[in-house]
Simulated assay, not measured.
Amino acid sequence: MSDSTVTGATAPEQVHEAAPAPAGQPAPAGQPATTGRRLLRATGATVAAALVGVVIGIGVIETRYDDPAPVIAAAPTAVAPAPSATPTPFGAKSNGNHFGSLRDLLLPVPAGYALGPDEGGYGNDAELSADQLSAELDDDLQQIPKEKREKLRQYWEGLHVKATGVRTYKERGNSLVIGLKLRQFNQQEVQKLNEYTAVFTGDTGLFRIGPEVPGHPEAHCYLMPAPPSAPIDYLECSAAEGDLLVIMSAEGVAPLPKDKIVTLFTQQLDRLASPGASV
């Protein structure tokens, strides 16, 4: 994809997010130095997305999925609202493609957490529509050199992007903020991007190796470069689950509670298990 790489292009998450606070600058006691605009920053998985310019995380186009009949997911339990006897109209089909609202597929707010800060202009609990993001894609492509725009548009259309869901979470003690994104597009491209991200973040030496995610070998976590004395730390996890690229960003007071973060990421991936969604 080297001929479609855009030199100097802004990575997808960076299009809408402010730069992080300078390293080493202290945050208010007990609170991460974060804003909604940089919660889901251009790191890890989004570095890989930069290979295709801005398109992977910006727009949504409608696509047709010719799949077998869906398997209806069981009503959520545990961290979800009280169970219902009526099956929940979301889950995974037998071929791994997901159906239903991405807001339903996103992990419900667990005990001890509340909805977090806004993620850019998307709010803190949203599914991004085709109309909204297609218009945004058109705007952002104007930042790309003219001779590259058509290649990026063609690549975007080949991804068969369907939707993007966003939810943020804030620990009630205000020491940890987590963002989750579900990006729904062609399964093969989801897998390729996730594999590339694993190689990029593991082999370049730019990132610190993060914790493993038990039961999910396709998932990988990595920490951002930071001096040992930095008061705030950042961790990102990525995984491919069928037609969903799952990205979790965590920002909080150092040292991060990695076990707690991995537990939430595991719960999100288990919720997307195929066939059917579960908590």
Rank of each mutant, 00 (worst) to 15 (best):
T34A: 15
T34C: 14
R37Q: 14
R37C: 09
R37M: 11
R38F: 15
R38W: 15
R38S: 13
R38T: 11
L39Y: 06
A42M: 06
A42S: 13
G44H: 09
G44C: 04
T46A: 09
A48D: 10
A48F: 07
A50N: 15
A50S: 15
L51I: 06
V52F: 14
V55L: 12
V55Y: 11
G59F: 01
V60G: 01
I61S: 11
I61N: 07
E62G: 10
Y65C: 10
D67S: 06
P68F: 02
P70V: 01
V71L: 00
A74G: 09
A75T: 15
P76E: 03
P76C: 03
P76D: 03
T77A: 06
T77H: 04
V79P: 12
V79G: 10
A82E: 08
P83H: 00
T86D: 04
T86K: 10
T86R: 11
T86F: 08
P89T: 00
P89D: 00
P89N: 01
F90P: 03
G91K: 01
G91N: 04
K93Y: 11
S94W: 11
N95E: 12
N95D: 15
N97R: 03
F99T: 00
R103W: 03
L105F: 03
P110Y: 03
P110Q: 02
A111W: 10
G112P: 13
Y113A: 09
Y113W: 14
A114G: 12
L115A: 14
L115D: 13
G116E: 07
G116F: 11
P117E: 05
P117D: 05
P117L: 13
D118E: 08
D118Q: 04
G120P: 08
G120M: 12
G121E: 13
